[in-house]
Write a protein that binds this DNA or RNA. Structure first.
Lengths: 333, 333
DNA sequence: CTGAAAGCGCTTACAG
DNA sequence: CTGAAAGCGCTTACAG
């Protein structure tokens, strides 16, 4: 089966390629009804399908964007990506998702690959360690927006959570419920990942505001696989925390595993709040109090910001945009 | 900033485009060292990046495949997609994911769109209601493989679970634990979705084999939003089931919500097994006994099958391939 | 060992 | 109202 091209249609309809192309692009302004019908019929009988690759080459636009996420394992990421896809599809853009797996090298590879594929723009959850590349895209006025994270001194706008507020909501709720010894666990901050750094900062700030001491031992950062150990260390303290804020969904899960394994009761033995509204929060026993991010809005806003950049070059940037977190009170504190 | 093309590199290096192209494609066989270096240097100083769209047009291969899932909300789907992406990336193929949202019209749209984008092949979780299109692709020898579902009389090979066995494992385990009144709930089967049909069939077969009566009332199929109601109906029966098999992750979640809301105890009041090993199964209270699908292997196998078809046209099909489910015994039965 | 030329399948400014 | 021609950025068979 030979592929049928615009030339075949032209021949069959006895018109030129130009006319067929006009037809395809709905420039009917001054096209004779009869011509139109002949083309229609030719397309129908030949089963013609336009070749978008050829079109893209000529138009220098693929109508697709790339999304490079830092780590697809987070529930947050999955939901945001879905929102991005929805928003793009409804503007007739396609989306290519790549998972950098927290690895700056992979991120670099994907950025280059996607640009070679001529995507019209990029949404990146930056690993943070490709500053030169980021800057280069900025200089080239290539449309990029960051999501979930910022990169210091790189003026690419970012859409993210008000992380200070997220921690504040949690700490305040703990305090309201009578807790004073409050800890926080996040995953590793060696790469200066924005949300983790800010959530810790927010926790410390909120503790101070509540007139509570900031105890270094109560603040743990460790990679996923070491969180069980972090829990053990924490609870071994002379005065162990009575409440713990989980920095994200993965941390929360590790905490719940630990709690179950050691037969602890929530909230009697340990109160828990998780940042990120995990799927099972509402029907877990006990139902988990969480700080929810508006994942859908974040993704939507990210896509809109990028599409705007793509379609009206040199739109001024409004800097970062922060969404407000929401406390969902359930039974774990 | 003008985009720099292969011509620019050629000019700068004082060679022809052909030579640069040879260089880019690593055909160094008989290229003078000096030429090589000049090209290298030109690429470096100009910051040249190849345009893959142009390349694809010429080569008639985009080195990307399309994946159209029926419904991205299933955890199964997410995991399989991830496995597909991994397998593709390691063969240097890109992946474009589309979510048909259980809608045959959307599916049709995506199939056409992706083919217009010249993807080299398609992995489809078929909605089942685009038979003409499926057949047409088959006739055109366009590389396609189905995942998770089959379509009757369309001889596109499918990779899926041994669903009969999945139900059998569950029923047998219930019976072993002393349960006799066993029900099953799946989502809607009006569209003849393979796994749902087969899981019900498997349930009925296994019940018979165990010498247990098949009670029509114990078999419920309803859309996600009506499952709470189905539970209510089930438990209102004179002789309500004491054990329930959840047809997939979404059904399980609805059941758990119902159970929590109505203060039932698992497994004392109701034993539960879920098909699909949900993320929270192990640390839920009680931990949920599940039938796990080898999602990673399924995705990997699907990608490999497709890539094989793409790279050696006319490879003979081996028909459907079924993976074995695994019973993960925990505390919910 | 390297280059000129044709062609992949489109679009569009321009001419008539 | 429609068409001839040039061009998007590559690749490759062929020639020298």
């Amino acid at each position: 089966m030979k592929t049928v091209t615009i030339s075949d249609v032209a021949t069959h309809a006895k018109v030129s390629k130009s006319t067929v192309s006009h037809y395809l692009n709905r420039r009917y302004d001054s096209m004779r009804e009869n011509t139109k019908q002949r083309i229609e019929e030719a397309i129908e009988t030949l089963g013609y399908q336009p070749n978008i690759v050829a079109r893209s080459l000529k138009l220098k636009s693929t109508r697709s964007i790339g999304v490079i996420v830092a780590n697809i394992l987070h529930n947050f990421t999955t939901e945001v990506v879905r929102a991005i896809e929805d928003a793009c599809i409804s503007s007739d853009y396609h989306t290519i998702i790549c998972n950098a797996d927290d690895d700056p090298l992979k991120e670099k590879h994907y950025i280059e690959m996607l640009r070679a594929k001529q995507v019209d723009g990029l949404i990146i959850f930056p690993t943070g360690n490709n500053r030169d590349l980021y800057q280069q895209m900025l200089n080239a006025r290539y449309p990029v927006v960051f999501l979930d994270r910022t990169v210091e001194d790189i003026s690419i706008p970012s859409i993210l959570l008000d992380n200070l507020q997220a921690s504040k909501l949690a700490v305040e709720h703990f305090v309201e419920q009578g807790y004073r010894r409050i800890g926080i666990i996040t995953t590793s901050i060696i790469n200066h990942i924005t949300p983790r750094i800010e959530r810790i900062k927010g926790y410390e700030k909120a503790m101070s505001e509540q007139g509570l001491p900031i105890i270094d031992n109560y603040v743990r950062t460790s990679k996923s696989t070491d969180i069980q150990q972090a829990m053990a260390d924490l609870l071994k303290l002379d005065e162990p925390p009575q409440a713990i804020l989980a920095g994200n969904d993965l941390v929360l899960i590790e905490i719940l595993k630990y709690v179950k394994q050691h037969g602890l009761r929530i909230p009697e033995d340990l109160a828990v709040i998780g940042i990120d509204d995990v799927s099972f929060a509402s029907f877990y026993t006990p139902a988990i109090t969480t700080i929810a991010q508006p994942t859908f809005e974040i993704g939507k806003r990210g896509a809109e910001a990028l599409l705007k950049k793509i379609n009206q070059k040199d739109v001024e940037d409004y800097g970062n945009f922060r969404f407000e977190p929401e406390l969902k009170i359930r039974d774990s504190v």
